[in-house]
């Protein structure tokens, strides 16, 4: 048996302390969530004492389960609705913005690009308060609720696809498109048949990321939600977590968690398939994690 000093000085010893810290951290970060998921299957009302397995809080309970309680499933539907609508508007808008800015020189596009970057780094609460003021104190036809939420989310997310697509455009370079145009393609045809297919992985990645980010959003959607029927899951959790909720709340959060994990897993697998054999796009899980 060697002494602790010899152990410490051994240059080949395995990094046991770092392993302990890392796995301790992982346990600490994931086990609480796992426990919350487990308690969504609890048979009783308690979120702290295990009373047997059941799916009562998902659909079994005729009044308080997610399936039957209108307040809970509207929240889930509202979250998914916001995610889909926002993604459908944001991604085309952001991709067009990125391509347009990339091939337009001058002060105006430079200013627009700066504006986009500022919208990217500004704290969310500032945009939320600003839009709340606009909607509530100006005579506009926009009301609090889904429309205001979508407006705010699109504004907040538009920089995401724009930044990703611009980064991809920078790695692709101009040579492929110029070759296409030298061979007789019009600018529009070169864009459609050469650049766009090369941009597809970035566009797809930003679609997944925008969707996942929107269904996790809290600050914007809370200020811009009109009444309880437009409150998405995150707001519902915030409102009821401290007011003696049932495990149905855990069930609601679990459903959202699975929706997000499903989107990310499918997204990652498709992304990997798309970029297979393409060494200009960074591959592997690290790349998707980095973007993610």
């Amino acid at each position: 048996m060697r002494g602790p000093v010899a152990w410490w000085n051994d240059p080949w010893r395995p990094p046991r302390i770092l392993v302990a810290v890392t796995f301790g951290y992982l346990a600490w970060s994931l086990i609480p969530v796992l426990i919350a998921v487990i308690f969504s299957f609890n048979d009783g009302r308690s979120r702290t004492v295990w009373q047997g397995f059941s799916t009562r809080w998902y659909f079994g309970d005729p009044v308080k389960s997610v399936w039957h309680d209108a307040a809970l499933h509207t929240a889930l539907l509202q979250t998914l609705k916001l995610g889909v609508i926002t993604t459908l508007i944001t991604v085309p808008l952001g991709v067009m913005f990125a391509i347009g800015i990339d091939r337009w020189r001058g002060r105006l596009p430079a200013g627009a690009n700066l504006l986009m970057l500022v919208s990217f780094v500004l704290p969310e609460v500032l945009l939320a308060v600003a839009l709340l003021f606009v909607v509530t104190s100006l005579p506009l036809p926009i009301k609090l609720g889904t429309e205001a939420q979508v407006l705010g989310l699109v504004t907040f997310q538009i920089a995401y696809p724009a930044v990703l697509v611009r980064a991809r455009l920078a790695t692709i370079g101009t040579q492929y498109e110029e070759a296409a145009m030298d061979l007789g393609a019009s600018p529009l045809a070169a864009l459609r048949r050469v650049t766009l297919p090369m941009l597809l992985p970035a566009i797809f990645a930003s679609t997944v990321l925008v969707f996942a980010d929107v269904i996790d959003d809290f600050v914007l959607v809370r200020y811009l939600s009109g009444n309880s029927s437009t409150e998405p899951v995150s707001v519902k959790i915030y409102n009821t977590a401290r007011a003696a909720p049932t495990p149905a709340l855990n069930a609601l959060a679990t459903l959202l968690l699975f929706a997000a994990l499903l989107a990310i897993t499918v997204g990652y697998l498709v992304y990997r398939r798309m970029t297979r054999g393409d060494n200009t796009a960074a591959g592997g899980i690290a790349a998707f994690a980095g973007e993610a």
Binding site: P32, A36, F218, I237, A253, A260
Partner: peptide, 11 residues
């Protein structure tokens, strides 16, 4: 990253 912030606080 993919677990909602509110869900983690709820836990």
């Amino acid at each position: 990253f993919w677990i909602s912030y509110m869900m983690r606080m709820l836990a």
